[in-house]
Write a protein that binds this DNA or RNA. Structure first.
Lengths: 345, 345
DNA sequence: AACAGTACTGGTAACGTTTTCAGTAGACCA
DNA sequence: TGGTCTACTGAAAACGTTACCAGTACTGTT
């Protein structure tokens, strides 16, 4: 008696209506709590729902409504703990606004960026947050342009695509502070190891780096600049190369936490003691930097805040804001034991 | 002439059909490359698609087909680099099989687990891979049971839910090896810091730990066991407590990389030198362990392989395999400088 | 007593696909 | 010439919702 109907796979609104002896549309109204429905009807329908084990079909609902209440997030590298924090911040804010997030990672592969944008577009997401792997790739730009929904870029400027909001980090400011600190310690041979130049953070950091030298009317050590990818192997290889130079650097700036592990491996292999033999600053704080011996100075930023800012910008656009906007999050130089005054021989 | 129609927002198959002067069904056949369609028809339709800028609507398609070709992945903690690798492995394999993955994180919050399972179910995913935050939570079990689609658990055993496949890590074997190593170095006061006991890895590791003592007919140091959560703050707090004991441990085993950073912070604060004053082994290899001074011994495993295994098991079920299966991945003890022979006073 | 208004409820047409079922036209064979 | 076969195409019915448009039955007003 109590268990008239056993919950079975795939009960639909129609069956709920039949079981409750009401019209399909009434069930829909109850579910979307439409104002014009009687208490009796509500109870009746809710009972029927429980009885048949009904589960709404979001595909059908989205199709009909024309909106999925879902935003996509394409992370360029999910293994970077930094991104986890950005995602966290974004998801939190989106959740509050009743949106859910589908996350995908492009593994730093520009081709996957394209595929993912297309896929999400076809899934009819309402908006997109992403950090493309290559700002200049025509395919990516094309896919993005086909997207009618609002877009927020994270630390990226996509050439010829200016309808998106963006959240930027003040990389140039942070890098400038880091470089000035090293210069003030007497370092001149400062190396910069970073990712591909087609990425905004890399360009901005370079700007800050150069600015620090130029302010002091010093020559930028062009032979010590290494642009490749934000990966440990590149960091290791670049560092090894730098150490092998006739006039090697006395300080290294690493452009990210993945690079950092490569840099440290190479320094270790080259028997260089951090701080003592060579000064080191990295970007983005991670446990590895904090707990290294000696602790490594970093240019830090609040990644959770970045995620929140990205979500807020997107929500603004989703709410009908037609004017794309830009938010900037500050950086902060955390000095630790890895930078030491240059001993003049 | 060439640009008869400018690509506009939301062209539908109907418009493609109209533009090509063919039936709706023919367009569909072309898109799903049905065998019975002439070359002429294909060309005609493809031209029309390009002309009107048609983009398939996956919502409609999935609704009609009754399958989304999508599997959900609920990660319990996305900020753990380990998970990134699991996701990578899983996504790779699923991709090959034509499935796409939607990723969500529960932030280690059991409540979110529930919400996410429900959401994904309503989105009509075809399958689910997950690592629940709490194996015993009734709500989670209920939500999982309502799911008619195949499920693969990662390193979890959900009580009363036995229709899922699972991929397990040989945690007990790894922990046993680690414990035996420490015992053979003369350590007896060995502490174990780990997550909540409601998680399989924690229970299995404890088993391995106890087995090592029992093999040697030694008493398990119950007062040195600390179960809390897989987080840095807990690791730090537990370690601080242990160091303050009258008879403190001479060795610590940390149950994860997040815990490890907490443990190291506490050791540093307590002025204990790793290796020299206290031996240390952690679980799962991360750059922090490798590049620490001294390098930290770890019980490692291949996370990418875990992801691949999970995806393979799911695909098997999706292909109609009705019998849930279990895969186990091995662990491996990597000895480094953080474990030293106990100096007897 | 007729009317307008209120508070609901039911039927039905969408949303954009896929799939089934009939058809048509030509080719081939006898 | 008629017939069966093959190769293709079109019409229309789903899939599970939501939203619109009419109802219906009260209640209150004049």
């Amino acid at each position: 008696m109590e268990h008239e109907y056993v919950a079975m796979k795939g009960a639909t609104m129609k069956e709920v209506a039949a079981h409750a002896g009401v019209a399909l549309s009434s069930v829909s109204r109850v579910l979307n709590n439409h104002p014009d429905v009687s208490e009796a009807m509500k109870r009746q329908v809710h009972d029927a729902i429980a009885a048949v084990g009904y589960e709404p079909n979001l595909l059908a609902s989205s199709l009909r409504r024309g909106s999925t209440k879902t935003v996509g997030f394409i992370a360029s590298d999910i293994s970077n703990p930094l991104f986890a924090e950005i995602v966290l911040g974004a998801e939190r804010r989106l959740d509050e606004a009743g949106y859910s997030m589908v996350l995908t990672n492009s593994e730093g592969n520009p081709e996957r960026d394209e595929t993912m944008i297309r896929l999400l577009r076809r899934r009819r997401i309402d908006g997109l947050i992403l950090s493309v792997a290559d700002e200049d790739r025509p395919g990516t730009i094309a896919e993005l342009s086909k997207l009618a929904e609002p877009v927020v870029l994270i630390d990226r400027e996509v050439s010829g695509f200016h309808t998106a909001s963006a959240v930027f980090t003040d990389h140039s400011g942070g890098m400038r502070a880091a470089s000035e600190h090293l210069l003030s310690l007497g370092h001149r041979r400062i190396a910069l190891i970073s990712g591909a130049r087609s990425l905004r953070p890399v360009r901005e950091r370079l700007k800050g780096f150069e600015a620090a030298f130029q302010t002091r009317s010093l020559q930028v050590p062009e032979d010590l600049l290494r642009f490749g990818s934000f990966s440990a192997p590149f960091g290791q290889q670049a560092t090894a190369e730098l150490l092998a130079l006739d006039d090697p650097p006395t300080a290294i700036i690493s452009g990210g936490n993945l690079l950092l592990t490569g840099v440290l491996r190479a320094l270790q292999a080259g028997q260089r003691s951090v701080g003592r033999d060579i000064s080191l600053i990295s970007c983005d704080d991670v446990p590895l930097a904090e707990l290294h011996t000696p602790p490594i100075s970093v240019v830090d930023r609040d990644a959770v805040q970045m995620g929140e800012a990205a979500a807020s910008l997107l929500l603004e656009l989703l709410a009908g804001g037609d004017r794309p906007r830009v938010a900037e999050v500050p950086t902060q130089l955390l000095l630790r034991g890895s930078t030491q005054s240059l001993v003049v021989d």
